[in-house]
Simulated assay, not measured.
Amino acid sequence: MRALAVLAALVLLLGGCGDDSGDRFVRPGAPKNSPSGKFVAHAESASEVRVTDRNGGDVFRKSYEYATSSRADGIGVVWLEKKDQLWVLVPGDTSERVEAGPDGVWTAVEAELPGEITRLG
């Protein structure tokens, strides 16, 4: 339950920030590079997440439309600070860790938020 409270705070933070300085969240029209610089996270809309390689090729894409269809909050999307691991925060639902597996294929797995992400809120 604590993760859901943190998630709600992060979503409020995401919606309430007007100043982008130091903001780590990915937003439509404001993609963010991964810590290694090898990947870029894009928020295609309030419910669509995409990760590309340096050349712009898709390595991951997922719609969270089901989670945002009845809410206007949108989702939160943020990289870990020192690892190419993307976190997708779904309002009122759960969080997903998005990263490449040993085979290089990017997948999303439901996971509890790490402390680094919860401290952002």
Rank of each mutant, 00 (worst) to 15 (best):
M1Y: 11
L4D: 10
L4M: 12
L4P: 04
V6H: 07
L7Q: 09
L7F: 04
L7W: 07
A9N: 08
A9E: 10
A9T: 07
V11S: 09
V11E: 08
L12W: 10
L14Q: 10
G15S: 12
G16N: 10
G16H: 01
C17R: 15
G18P: 05
D19A: 08
S21T: 15
S21I: 14
D23K: 06
D23N: 12
R24T: 09
F25V: 05
F25G: 04
P28E: 03
P28Q: 02
A30G: 07
A30I: 15
A30T: 13
A30V: 14
N33E: 14
S34R: 05
G37N: 05
G37E: 03
K38V: 09
V40Q: 03
V40H: 06
A41Q: 06
H42N: 06
E44N: 12
E44W: 00
S45F: 02
A46G: 13
A46T: 13
S47C: 11
E48V: 15
E48N: 13
V49A: 05
V49N: 02
R50E: 02
R50F: 01
V51N: 02
T52E: 07
R54K: 13
N55R: 12
G56D: 01
G57H: 14
G57L: 12
D58L: 11
D58V: 15
V59Q: 02
F60W: 01
F60P: 05
F60N: 08
K62T: 04
K62S: 03
S63F: 03
Y64P: 00
Y64W: 07
Y64I: 05
E65W: 12
Y66I: 15
A67H: 00
T68V: 15
S69R: 14
S69V: 15
S70Q: 12
S70L: 14
R71C: 10
A72Q: 12
D73P: 04
V77A: 03
L80S: 11
K82F: 08
K82R: 11
D84K: 01
Q85K: 09
L86S: 03
L86K: 05
W87V: 06
W87F: 03
V88L: 06
V88I: 10
V88G: 04
V90Y: 02
V90P: 03
P91A: 06
D93A: 15
D93R: 10
D93K: 09
T94I: 14
T94L: 15
T94W: 09
S95D: 05
E96F: 09
R97Q: 13
E99F: 02
G101W: 05
G104N: 00
V105Y: 00
W106E: 05
T107R: 13
T107S: 11
T107L: 09
E110M: 10
A111Q: 06
A111V: 03
A111N: 06
E112K: 09
E116F: 07
L120D: 02
G121Q: 08
G121T: 03
